[in-house]
Simulated assay, not measured.
Amino acid sequence: MRRVVVGVTGTLGSLAALHRAAAEARVRDAELRVVLAWQAPGGELGGRNGLGPRALAQCRTAAVERLREVLDTAFRAAKPGVTLAGITVRGTPGAALVDAARGVEDLLVVGTGSRAPLRRLRPSVARYCLAHAACPVLVVPPSPLQVEFDAAHRRNFWRIPLDARELGP
């Protein structure tokens, strides 16, 4: 069966990617596979040094609960209209998504993530997927509303006054 694989975190960008993936799955008559990747606190070193099986089980449980919250937020009003599979994977997001979308007929959907300067220090999941996926990758840009929200947040953070001329068309 063909699959549309989408990575989620719960951010507005990942919810936009999830809705786009659901639409693509309906058009393609494919299964929608929603993947939430998680890592132990401290990354893989934290998993090997000091975190016992009980702590890792708690991390896994938290990831499953987070995935349930994301799916509930995304599809509370209306069901996706396709077969839905939610999966939590321990690992880095890019590698987990590429591994989940192994088939050539699969489609991998990812959001672009934040373009804030400090967040760009982290590796880009979308770039990783574009470079390593064996299937087509659809990268969903942030919504215009998210872009405006980020701009307002930056303006408030740096205490830049709002120019009233920016509000009108």
Rank of each mutant, 00 (worst) to 15 (best):
R48S: 10
D29Y: 04
V34D: 05
A101G: 12
D29Q: 15
L121S: 00
L118E: 13
E24L: 08
P93A: 12
G43C: 01
R122G: 12
W38N: 00
V34R: 03
V110R: 07
L118H: 12
T92S: 10
G43T: 01
V98A: 09
A96M: 05
R66M: 08
R115W: 06
F75S: 09
R120C: 04
L97H: 11
A21K: 11
L18Y: 05
G52L: 12
E65D: 13
V98T: 14
P123Y: 02
G50K: 07
R102C: 05
V82N: 09
V27G: 07
R54I: 13
V35T: 05
G91W: 11
R115Q: 11
E105A: 08
K79I: 03
S14T: 15
R66Y: 04
A101E: 08
L84A: 01
R127N: 14
E65K: 13
S124V: 01
V64L: 13
A40R: 07
P93C: 01
V70M: 07
K79S: 15
R102H: 12
R120T: 01
A85M: 10
R20K: 14
L18R: 07
A100E: 11
A95N: 08
V70G: 08
A17F: 02
H19E: 13
L32N: 11
L18C: 05
E31M: 12
L97I: 00
R26T: 03
L51P: 05
T88E: 04
G94L: 01
L51F: 14
L36V: 05
R122T: 04
A96R: 03
A63H: 00
A57I: 07
E24H: 04
L15W: 02
G50P: 06
L107Y: 07
P123V: 01
R26E: 02
R120L: 15
P93S: 06
R28E: 06
A25L: 07
L15C: 01
K79G: 15
L121G: 07
L121P: 01
P53W: 11
P41G: 08
G86V: 09
V89K: 09
L45R: 15
V34I: 00
G50N: 06
N49S: 14
F75C: 11
L67H: 00
L84P: 03
L32K: 10
L67C: 06
G52R: 11
R119A: 14
I87H: 13
T61A: 15
A85R: 15
G91K: 06
L84N: 02
P80A: 02
L32S: 05
A101Y: 06
P117N: 03
A78W: 06
L67P: 00
A25C: 09
A40C: 10
A16C: 11
A55R: 12
V89N: 02
A85N: 08
R102V: 05
L18I: 03
A16W: 02
P117E: 05
L97W: 10
V35P: 05
R90Y: 00
L36I: 04
D72C: 13
A16M: 02
E24Y: 03
R120F: 06
E105T: 12
